[in-house]
């Protein structure tokens, strides 16, 4: 922690990366994904642009989506050009991501 050489910070896992960020998770999914639409999508920009890595490819070729650890940035719906695939809203007031070091 005090700067010892040789520590390999590239090894940080995505879960560790997200560990310090607070989420007040709502029961309502503020984003829903119609994976039937996604099945026919070949572009799949969401897999790359979502900074929280909430869009994950499934072994069967589909997309798995989790809403809980969402930064609410909007990148996914902005790059998605498949009509109706992503239904995007803000979480209810007071819920969702809570930044302390933004």
């Amino acid at each position: 922690m005090t700067g010892q050489p040789g520590e390999d910070y590239r090894e940080i896992s995505f879960d560790d990366r997200m560990e310090g960020t607070e989420f007040r998770v709502s029961e309502r999914a503020h984003i829903t994904v119609d994976t039937e639409v996604c099945d026919s999508c070949t572009v799949r920009s969401c897999l790359h642009v979502c900074p929280a890595k909430l869009f994950v490819p499934r072994a069967d070729g589909g997309i798995l989506f989790n809403f809980e650890q969402c930064f609410e940035c909007g990148a996914c719906y902005q790059v998605c050009d498949a009509e109706g695939a992503i239904t995007w809203t803000y979480p209810d007031g007071g819920l969702g991501v809570v930044f302390r070091k933004g």
Partner: peptide
């Protein structure tokens, strides 16, 4: 080097 990540944000 050695910085401990306290928050990730986007």
């Amino acid at each position: 080097r050695g910085g401990r990540q306290v928050e990730y944000a986007a």
